[in-house]
Simulated assay, not measured.
Amino acid sequence: MTHLLSFTVEGIACALPLAETRQVVGMVELRPEAGNRRGGAGTMNLHGRTVPVYSLRMLLGLPDRPPLPTDALIIAHPGPDCVALWVDRVKGVQESTVPLPPDGDISSSPGVLVADNGTVLIYDLSAFLAAEENGQLPLPGAVGTGGEEPSCDPGRAGAILAARARAFAQPEEEPPETSFSEILTFRLANQEYAIKTQYIREVFIIREITPVPGVPDFIAGICTVRGEIISIVDLRTLFSIPKHGLTDLNRVIVLTDGTVTFGILADYITDIGIRPTDQFSPVDPGMTPIERRYLLGATDGSVIVLDAAAILADPAMVINETRK
């Protein structure tokens, strides 16, 4: 399962692996650059660092146009260097199960493919940009639907872009002593929960769970993951979470601390992102029946952040023949 950042360019739906992105910012006034880099729209000053900006319009063979304040720049790191991708609009994060071409495949444009639903998936940004720089043809069949361009006074637009450019050119301020963690958010029994990704090995869609007699009720069964047998835990039973309405429970989030490994069931994955861990708010009484020792707090208003370390370290999670 791959998480993608989805965006549009001239009405074309596009996506990029979330792992290759750093941040999304509003469009800025671009500085000209020497040379004739294919797809090159100029450069931006990102806190004192010169970052090359690529126009996805040009790379996909679409008509060029001046930047607009409503456009976006995706700051990405396909390798050791940082680049910015100029797009029309960023839509959000989505899951993808599209199979990628094997290494060495030359039947498609390098680093990019068109999914069955028409989405242009740039699965290898380094290969895509390198191929374009070497003068290869734009992606075949990339035809825009002529997305609407918002009306904007050129003078006002230029002033907005210039002001943003000046702001991003300022040296980056030393951040306060704040710790951040990447968390995966998922839905279970009509409530959103989150877990730090440092404890998540993988996420997959499960087809079948094999029941095991004589184990605690919270063990839904076992399944095989690439030859390894792991237990599947139903958090609803473990924490006495009320079961409301119909649920899918077809996603498995594999948790591990290097010693203990098991999967937990979820209805579906909703998001993945960075959050300041020292700003988690207390969980209000009544939000969840889960004991406080298994909670880190709440974020984004109502998302309950579970303490994966505490769950993995709980002796109750270790099932052996001596347990009654």
Score class of each variant (00 low, 15 high):
residue 5 L to H: 04
residue 7 F to P: 01
residue 12 I to E: 01
residue 13 A to I: 06
residue 14 C to G: 02
residue 21 T to R: 01
residue 27 M to Q: 05
residue 27 M to R: 05
residue 31 R to K: 10
residue 32 P to I: 01
residue 39 G to F: 02
residue 48 G to T: 03
residue 51 V to I: 08
residue 54 Y to G: 11
residue 61 G to I: 10
residue 74 I to M: 04
residue 75 I to M: 01
residue 83 V to Q: 06
residue 83 V to L: 06
residue 83 V to C: 07
residue 85 L to R: 00
residue 90 V to P: 00
residue 91 K to M: 13
residue 95 E to L: 11
residue 99 P to G: 07
residue 104 G to V: 09
residue 106 I to Y: 13
residue 111 G to F: 08
residue 114 V to R: 04
residue 127 A to K: 08
residue 128 F to E: 00
residue 144 G to E: 00
residue 146 G to D: 02
residue 148 E to G: 09
residue 148 E to Q: 12
residue 148 E to A: 12
residue 149 E to F: 13
residue 149 E to M: 08
residue 150 P to L: 08
residue 161 L to T: 06
residue 176 P to I: 13
residue 178 T to Y: 11
residue 183 I to F: 13
residue 186 F to R: 00
residue 189 A to P: 12
residue 193 Y to P: 03
residue 197 T to F: 02
residue 198 Q to F: 13
residue 198 Q to H: 15
residue 209 I to N: 06
residue 214 G to Y: 07
residue 215 V to Y: 01
residue 219 I to R: 05
residue 220 A to T: 10
residue 221 G to N: 05
residue 222 I to W: 09
residue 226 R to M: 12
residue 233 V to R: 07
residue 236 R to D: 01
residue 236 R to S: 03
residue 238 L to M: 08
residue 242 P to N: 04
residue 243 K to C: 07
residue 244 H to Q: 13
residue 261 T to P: 11
residue 266 A to N: 02
residue 266 A to F: 00
residue 281 S to P: 15
residue 282 P to E: 13
residue 289 P to W: 05
residue 296 L to G: 14
residue 297 G to W: 06
residue 299 T to I: 12
residue 306 L to Q: 12
residue 310 A to P: 10
residue 314 D to K: 10
residue 324 K to H: 11
